[in-house]
Design a protein around this nucleic acid. Structure first.
Lengths: 192, 192
DNA sequence: ACCCGCCTAGGACAATCGCCCTAAACGCAA
DNA sequence: TTGCGTTTAGGGCGATTGTCCTAGGCGGGT
């Protein structure tokens, strides 16, 4: 089946791009991992940039789906934000090994001056606007986007250092710190 | 002069590794930028990893020198920490284009499973222990390293997002936020 | 039974990669 | 001047890169 093969390629490329980086992952790497020939590969994706587009779109869809799920499961926006913060722990092992999938891809594409860098950044935008929406519901109004960017940045920093030092203790203590920060913010906005 | 050529290679490689990444920068790239032949290049560095070692050591020396200068110029540890925070603004343009030199290199080497990843991480350690020392002088005692890691992580996150979104406003507002955080920490430790 | 279109395999392409070699030019000491 | 070690230039190695091409196999519609 055609679609199945295409999906398998994208899912495999997704993992390899994350673990090895986009530039360091070759056609041959992906074909070998999927278990197909390079010719078959070429039938589905003409250029390497095509695969990158596919992978980014795949990540966008997955992320959107995850955020939607969080939107349904609970009705407390604060809990949703806490779910976001706890990705760092849930995916802790991968993050310590390979860093944040979104941040590292965006950074690599920025260095390569790659046209898809803005597409990778739109992954950030997905989180950013979702977080901003949760803060709005908590009553932060015009400050919502600012707080969303703040927490997004904090997460990026934690992921970067947890990766550099392979430090799980640091990761967990920073997650706790971010949750405390969130509580403070909520407490202060409820005064008015 | 031999040393001069070697230095020129390292300085050029330093810039290229930062702007394009380690993997994406070839022998030919560096040789072309320096203006020498590949044969001459090979005389000074046998392998690409040798250049990486040279670049990392060069960065270590430069960083140590910068931190020493800050240690001499002022005698207020808080001001020194503020100097660190303000790197984000001083190097704002480069950071928005290429990210943090330390963080992006460490992240790339981690993905490549490169032996020099720990050496790149030692660049972080340089900042970490220096910051920790300043916090100690401010009286934070056992919490010093924790605070050093916290501020290091915050900086990394700010750099990552400022790069992804090419956002100077975010960068500056986060720097201000970090300085406010520092003031709060100092105020709270002085109570006792 | 036949054909046509999609899927797959695998080889070939020029270009580039990191790395290695040889030879000429250089500068300093005897 | 002669001689030797250092620095330089430039070609070439096998391997790998992204990309492209051709040929065979499979399956559904006529």
């Amino acid at each position: 089946m055609a679609i199945a093969t295409r999906d398998r390629i994208i899912k495999t490329a997704d993992i390899l791009f994350y673990q090895q980086g986009f530039e360091a992952t070759s056609f041959a790497d992906i074909a070998l991992a999927v278990g197909i020939s390079r010719g078959n590969f070429y039938h589905h994706f003409k250029t390497k940039d095509d695969i990158l587009d596919g992978v980014i779109n795949h990540r966008l869809a997955n992320t959107e789906q995850m955020l939607d799920r969080w939107e349904i499961e609970g009705d407390d926006p604060a809990d949703r934000i806490r779910s976001f913060i706890h990705i760092l722990i849930v995916n802790g092992e991968k993050i310590r090994k390979f860093g944040c999938p979104v941040g590292t891809l965006s950074s690599e594409l920025a260095k390569l001056n790659h046209a898809a860098q803005s597409d990778a950044a739109s992954l950030f935008t997905l989180f950013r606007s979702w977080l901003s929406r949760q803060f709005e519901r908590l009553g932060f109004a015009g400050r919502s986007d600012f707080l969303a960017m703040h927490i997004l940045g904090r997460s990026q920093g934690v992921a970067a250092l947890a990766n550099a030092f392979n430090d799980d203790v640091f990761l967990r203590s920073e997650v706790e710190l971010m949750c405390l920060w969130l509580d403070e913010q909520i407490a202060s906005v409820r005064k008015y």
